[in-house]
Simulated scan of single mutants.
Amino acid sequence: MQRFETYLTENLPKVPSFHPIYEDALGVMLEAGGKRFRPMLLLSIVDAYEPMLYNSSLPVALAIEMLHTYSLIHDDLPAMDNADLRRGHPTLHKRYDEVTAILAGDALNTEAFYLIAKAPLREDVKIKLVELLARDGGSRGMVLGQAIDCYFENKPLDLEQIKTLHTNKTAKLIAVSLQMGAVIVGLEKKIQDELYAFGIDLGLLFQIQDDIIDETQSEEEAGKTTGIDADKNSFVNLLGLDETVAQADALAKDLQRRFEDFDEKLQTALQPLMNKYLHRHN
């Protein structure tokens, strides 16, 4: 992923103006690190099937990371989670102010689609990528999940509703990262669908693990504000810690089984991620 990290550093949004902090604000949360999980999923697929398209896919991978970062910036705002810490750094509204954080999030959201539109890929491929990212990153996906999360704070949901919440808020952007990689390399629809379904469950596992981290780790260990899920509809709040860990283990085993049905190239592409993330709560 060093290639991606270098690409990101060299392609932070450049918008020179007489505004003293605007350009810095657009790049600071991108540079603050993070797992780069979503771009890694996309680039792993591209690298496995069409390594010649890797460099052309970097702007698309960065677009996904920008959209994800915008969602974190807005998620941390006083109106939502009111968090002080993200990726081990002060959140954007703490570093600057609330207006700057809102506008930086807005800017990264639209910058993502600008990057895809300008990528050196075929026009029909780029239109499909824009469609997929808009579908799962917008009103039908991540934004819906965030809306449910905020509206139903202090109002307990059942397990299926919590799964719907987190499928939209977290899992769809992870699933679509895999699907967008598959679109770039021209994998057939059936494999795209299998990858997407796998990504949804991988995203749910990610969220369950995140709930466990929120419950069991300090802010220093997690690198972000923890302990803020007390009023939220989290798996831990509904099921308790032991049952949540059991659910995570069951989901991880199911994902491992499905992973073993993928073709050799896909397995090679995703193996490092499986090793790193499948059992990260243990």
Rank of each mutant, 00 (worst) to 15 (best):
F4Q: 08
Y7N: 02
E10Y: 07
L12V: 05
P16N: 11
P16I: 02
S17F: 02
I21F: 14
A25R: 01
G34F: 01
K35N: 04
M52Y: 15
Y54F: 14
N55V: 14
S56N: 14
S56K: 15
S56C: 14
S57Q: 03
P59V: 07
V60L: 01
V60G: 06
V60S: 03
Y70M: 05
S71G: 04
D76P: 10
D81E: 02
P90G: 02
T91R: 05
L92E: 02
L92Y: 10
R95N: 05
Y96W: 00
A101N: 00
L103C: 12
L108M: 11
T110A: 13
F113Y: 14
I116S: 04
A119M: 08
A119G: 09
E123A: 15
E131Q: 15
G137H: 08
M142H: 02
D149T: 04
C150N: 11
E153P: 00
N154A: 08
N154D: 11
D158H: 00
I162T: 06
T167D: 15
T167L: 15
T170L: 01
K172A: 08
A175H: 06
G181A: 08
G181Q: 00
L187V: 01
E188F: 13
K190Y: 13
K190E: 15
Q192Y: 10
E194Y: 12
L195Q: 05
L195D: 08
L205T: 06
D210F: 01
I213K: 13
Q217V: 09
E220S: 09
A222S: 03
T226R: 06
D229V: 09
D231K: 13
D231M: 12
F235I: 03
N237Q: 02
L238D: 02
G240E: 07
L241R: 03
L241F: 07
E243D: 11
V245Y: 00
D249K: 12
A250P: 05
A250Y: 13
Q256G: 13
R257L: 13
E260I: 12
Q267S: 10
L270W: 06
P272F: 09
K276Q: 12
H281E: 01
N282K: 15
